[in-house]
Design a protein around this nucleic acid. Structure first.
Length: 108
DNA sequence: ATTATGACTTATT
DNA sequence: GAATAAGCCATAA
């Protein structure tokens, strides 16, 4: 995937995103740090309308508090359930408090 | 150039 | 725990 029409920032976000292995997740913050950006919010902004799903596995990016975060522009509802299902299919473990297990978190 | 808007995070109350 | 405010920074208008 070339991402040629995208801004340099978005290229970095998408490339970093593709480094997350199946069955693991990372956080908006870690991803931001990996691309030398100081705004996890800007990363969320770039993934908000990710044109390359699921080629770019943006469902593997979650919040720092180990909760899910958004999907397809939604912060709650069907889209978020789908995100959870995708992750569970890949083997990501959810704890009893509905947070993602620490062992599943991938760090760059 | 300026303003507004977030799939965020941290600190505070 | 919930709600608020402030900081962050790329985009779109």
């Amino acid at each position: 995937m070339m991402f040629d029409d995208e801004s340099p920032f978005r290229k970095k976000v998408y490339r970093a995103c593709q480094c997350i292995p199946e069955g693991r997740v990372t956080t908006y913050k870690h991803l931001a740090q990996a691309i030398d950006c100081n705004s996890s919010q800007a990363v969320g902004q770039a993934l908000r309308n990710n044109p390359y799903a699921p080629e770019v596995p943006c469902h593997r990016v979650i919040k720092t508090n180990r909760r899910l975060g958004g999907f397809y522009g939604q912060v709650e509802g069907e889209a978020v359930l789908k995100k959870k299902n995708l992750l569970q299919q890949e083997g990501v473990i959810f704890d009893n408090d509905d947070r993602i297990n620490k062992a599943c978190i991938f760090t760059f």
